Structures are given as C-alpha cells and as structure tokens.
Computed example of a mutant assay.
Amino acid sequence: MQGHKKYIVSTTINAPTEAIRRFDAMKDWTLIVVGDRKTPTDYRLDNGRYLSPSDQEKLAPELSELIGWNCIQRRNLGFVLALDEGADIIATVDDDNIPYENWGSELLVGTTATMKSFIVDGDCFDPVGATEHRHLWHRGFPLQLLRTRDYSNFEDRQVHVDIQADFWDGDPDIDAVCRMEHAPDVTFDTGSFPFTSDTVSPFNSQNTFLTSEALRRYFMVPFAGRMDDIWAAYHLLHLGYKVAYAQASVRQDRNVQDLTGNLVNEFVGYENNAKMVQAINSGSYDISAYWPQRALRAYEAYMRRVDA
C-alpha cells in the first residue's frame, strides 16, 4: 500500500486511551479523532488531528446538525475530513481496540485476492461462526437464522476487496444475547482467515478498512441504536461492494457496558435484520423501509458533502 494516503478515524468521549496513543504513533497513517460534547476539552494528540465539536460544525454544518450530539455516529464527520484530504484507505476503529504490531500491514483492501468463499444457501452469512468459535455469532446477524448456519460449502475465489473487516481478540463483537450467555474471551486462529461469502453479512466499524470509493457510501446510521454500523454494512453490500474478513489485528478491552441497555438498543435489529437481508437477497430492498427518516436525511446530506 505504498503511495496510498491512509487514514484512521475514531470517536471518543474519553481522554486518549492506550489504543488511541498507539494509533497516533503509527507511521504512514494519519489519525483523526472525532470529539463530542462529553470529550475532555483539553484532548490532545501528538501527531494526529482532533476534530472538536466546533471544528465539526464548521466542516459540515448541515450534517453535524442532522446527526446530533452524544453519539458514536459523529464519526461520519471524520470520514468527511479524511475524504476531503484525499484519503485512499480509511480505517474506522474504536478507542478500546488495542492494535497489534502487525495492524494495518499487508492489507487486502483495494486489491484483488484469492480466498475461501463460503457459498450460503440462505439470506445471510455469519462470519464469526466460520471460525473455530461456532457457538458465537456476530452482532447484527439475524437471530432467526442461527439454526440455519452452514459452513460446509466453499471454494477458492478471486474477490476485489472493497472492505476488509479485521477480527478482534479478547471480547469479540457479539450481541448482548450472545454475550450474556457466553461472556467470551477469545483468541481467533489466524489459519481461519481470510475468507468471504457470496451473500450479505454483518461487519462493524471498530476495526475495518475501506477504500475511499466504498466510504463515500458507508454511513454510520444515527437513531438506529446499536445497529448503526450493521445497517451501514448491509446497505453497502447491497450496493455491490465486497467485504473480506481477515485475522484479528486488535485486542478489544471493552469499555464498561450495560448489557441490558445494549439489549434494548439492539432490539431494532432483532425486529428488522432478518427482513432486511431477505429483501436484499430478493432484490426488493428499499432503504427507506428500514432507516429512520432523520437518518435518511443525514445520509443524503453526507452524500452531498462527500460528492461535492
């Protein structure tokens, strides 16, 4: 990836964490941290860019107002800045995901590569179940489809990788139901990766790389609870972009969570995700049937801004 402009975008309401300090020290990457009204006013980075609330209002005033405050979807403003500055590859990360030494090296995103492709007889593919931890599932995978998961059919295929979703050791990205039941602390076998699928699948915003072209249509959905990045993923795959899943490159030491609160905020997904992936596969998907109207207005403002 020499010669490419590479950016990392995160959001925080905390002082710089260990993960942020490590991302900030990375050569060949430019870090953007998007603040919120709860972020310490003295927030400082050694090398990267801190985007304060006032900076965001100047950068994209319409989008800033439509998204609102005190939400992780402020990260969309960081995407705007990265695209403004000509980023080719953009990593979206969380501030509690501590990168390994090999993070961001030997990237597949933006390339064409041969990898295992799972052939799914169904509406959705669960990437977590494709590993050795088959008792777990990815946040946003429809619960109604858990019993239908089948990983027996696959072949090597060439895929142009628009999105590279790296995994996460430690506390993986599973939903509240799965976490309440299993409370896992895992290490993923690197031999399971990379892989892809021929159908739609969930990926998150906590350790994921996108090309600039894909990022122009990737939008963390406000007013959608904990489905903000999942619905962004499903929408992007609906548009024809391709995701590959790669080995864990961070260890997640999750910020303090209220699992009951998470469950409540995931309920909109339990209600809608199965219908959404079925519609995508049948060709009847309509974004306006699932995204809140306020979110649609914000997405339209985002596209106007990044395409200007």
Rank of each mutant, 00 (worst) to 15 (best):
M220C: 14
V268H: 01
F195R: 10
P202Q: 11
A224W: 02
T131N: 05
H133E: 12
E101F: 05
N153L: 11
R74F: 02
Y285R: 08
A19N: 05
S212C: 03
I8D: 06
M303S: 08
D175Y: 01
E213G: 01
R75S: 01
Y43C: 02
N47F: 01
R254A: 15
D95K: 00
P61N: 04
T187L: 11
L107M: 14
L237A: 08
F193W: 09
R217W: 01
L107F: 09
D253M: 08
V159K: 08
G110W: 09
A15P: 03
F167M: 14
V34L: 13
P292M: 10
L237S: 06
P99E: 04
D189T: 13
F203E: 07
D198V: 05
D162W: 07
S249W: 03
Q252I: 05
L81V: 01
R21C: 12
T260Q: 13
N102L: 02
N255E: 14
R74L: 06
D88F: 04
A130N: 05
R297K: 15
T187F: 08
A246Y: 14
L236I: 13
R251D: 07
N281I: 00
I13L: 11
T41A: 11
I119D: 09
P172Q: 13
G191A: 15
N47D: 06
R216T: 08
R157M: 10
P194M: 12
D28A: 13
H138F: 15
R147P: 03
F118G: 07
F223A: 09
H160W: 02
G140Y: 13
D198F: 10
